[in-house]
Design a protein around this nucleic acid. Sequence first.
DNA 1: TAGATTGTTAATCGATTAACAATC
DNA 2: TAGATTGTTAATCGATTAACAATC
Lengths: 203, 203
Amino acid sequence: MKQQIPVTSLQRLPVYLNYLKSLENTDRNISSGAIAAALGMGEVLVRKDLAYTSAQGKTRIGYRCGELISAIEEYLGCNRVLPAVIFGAGGLGRALMSYGGFKNYGINIVAAFDNDPDKTDKFVADIRICRVSEAAEVIRRHNVKLAVICVPASVAQEVCDTLVGCGICAVLNFAPVLLKVPEGVNVRNIDVAANLAILSSQI
Amino acid sequence: MKQQIPVTSLQRLPVYLNYLKSLENTDRNISSGAIAAALGMGEVLVRKDLAYTSAQGKTRIGYRCGELISAIEEYLGCNRVLPAVIFGAGGLGRALMSYGGFKNYGINIVAAFDNDPDKTDKFVADIRICRVSEAAEVIRRHNVKLAVICVPASVAQEVCDTLVGCGICAVLNFAPVLLKVPEGVNVRNIDVAANLAILSSQI
DNA sequence: TAGATTGTTAATCGATTAACAATC
DNA sequence: TAGATTGTTAATCGATTAACAATC
């Protein structure tokens, strides 16, 4: 485990990365002030965040753009390949299977699982939808640590328990329930409807 | 606009709501301590959050479970019906069209839009995928204020500008770009790949 | 040199937690 | 009454921002 970075900083690293990659020419320098202005934030915060990576700026010059990208990618582990699985091959699960963006972060979806026999043994974007009974074997064979839960809320906890039992230690959960997990298992929740509700309540 | 609630509190309201709704019997009392224990958080925080809604506890008794649900729902505006549109009918857009959970928050997807003629004029879950050229008319006719952006990153800013021009003032953005919007327009970002990357970097 | 920029240390701000009076 | 619980005020904590020395 790396030195302690606040989660808030960690969450901003992909934002910087997206911005830097969106620049046409990365063979140039960029100052923390320029990044901050483009992203609408304070420049000191940018420097602090970047300091958690191996990025090093030069006084009066700023950061080498390409080096910054590499440093963030290295920090986030975009270069190694980490296998992951998707549990639940409904609309969202299949959309994620088709989504190519995980590659940028070095994440490779090795399989999906669903308990509906009409869905299993089919392929979406070259990823196989497996029977749930195969999960333990597949997860152990690929040494998968990372899982995405896209099942209905009613079965999410049960699925999560199974996954944890198979050795999963990081879960991205789309089901609108708070998953109970043992110490050491990391969960991030994305509740799309709740996000829309938050927006709507501020209108 | 309501009295000032911290965004952090606002984000927790749907969590409380999900938990309370998951209880079998809502015709009973529940204390802030019990909620806090179930959700792994501090009880004072729970009381503070709930105090932003119209919920009122009784000393020694706690909160009436059903009243709490109603109070949060009222605060989040789950009872009115707010129209929303989805821009981009790819895998994710169609998954969201099929997702029934928005109803719980009083959000009604009235239409989707896509620039691919093979997708337009078709229906997903009774929601029509319209041509982009229809957007202004549809948004104005339904008085839509809320939009979900599910288009590729390369066109997200352009789509966002169009939406803002049509009167949209709240945007849920799934594209991994920081959208520039005028003052008064509210944006929330969900970057699924970045969330997975954050998890993976902590393994 | 003067000016731009980094990196760090101190100050501020906001959110969470602790303490506690009120009360049923 | 004693005990459980709310709601509020004060203290703490962590993250952001401001100030500034270093430097090229």
